[in-house]
Design a protein around this nucleic acid. Structure first.
Lengths: 136, 136
DNA sequence: CGAGATTTGTGCGTATGTATT
DNA sequence: AAATACATACGCACAAATCTC
């Protein structure tokens, strides 16, 4: 049973608890988290509270949700390298709803926006791309 | 009165409505959004639903909440340029809870992580920093 | 193919706590 | 002190997606 503490709301405590399950490896990528109903019974909390805890992990991008199936620990996707042209400006931000759909960006994952000197903009999901700064 | 549509839940419709208010400039940075109570009365919805709509905008990083005051359209902070050392690797992701507090990263704002060739890691809030690729 | 169980999504209501004005 | 506004937590009901048999 989790009870409200001065330092942390119940849903934050539960989120931290689940986060540690994942980071410690007790919950592996691809595995499902306990269902909302299970969390409700196990910790004696309301469903809203359990959902809020899961929402925290979703916002952090470490779990994904499949409706009618469950909450799954996210796989670490293959990272590809990206080297912009000289004179580019790079920013990171959360995607718009359109970009999320277009680029298949999961919840809680930002995008990398590369603005070339000619003004052209390219957007990359940050969970699959990283930038390499040339060694010279 | 907003009613559920096949295409969109009520809270999503309301989020889109508020988003347009902001993007169109009718709600300027620094201005407050209508309070939850106002939204409830104006659109004939439950408070939970109104909160959920606001939560969408918070996750997108376009509004911030000041407890006891209201929900405020976020200012566009001054952007500073950042040029990593040669051979660095740069990734973007959502911050951990600790980083959020440490770096004062608002909700819905990713961080830029720069890994130098020597392994040292530096983390920058993406709403205040961008990368400049030297023109050479 | 369908039926039912499971699981998350959405919406509503209520109550109380905390921070600001 | 009082009013305002968001935060947290509980409850209920039905919808929609997925899976199993």
């Amino acid at each position: 049973m989790i009870t409200p503490q001065p330092g942390g709301a119940v849903y934050r405590q539960l989120a931290e608890l689940l986060r540690q399950e994942i980071l410690s490896g007790r919950l592996q990528p691809g595995q499902k988290l306990p269902s909302e109903t299970t969390l409700v019974q196990r910790y004696g909390i309301a469903r809203e509270t359990a959902r809020r805890a899961v929402a925290v992990l979703r916002a952090e991008g470490i779990v994904g949700v499949v409706r009618g199936h469950g909450v799954v620990v996210r796989e670490q996707p293959t990272i590809q390298d990206l080297t912009p042209t000289s004179g580019s400006t790079i920013t990171a931000r959360m995607p718009t709803a359109d970009e999320r759909a277009e680029l298949e960006v999961p919840e809680g994952v930002p995008v990398i926006a590369v603005v070339a000197p000619d003004g052209g903009v390219e957007v990359y999901p940050a969970h699959r791309w990283r930038l390499r700064w040339p060694s010279s």
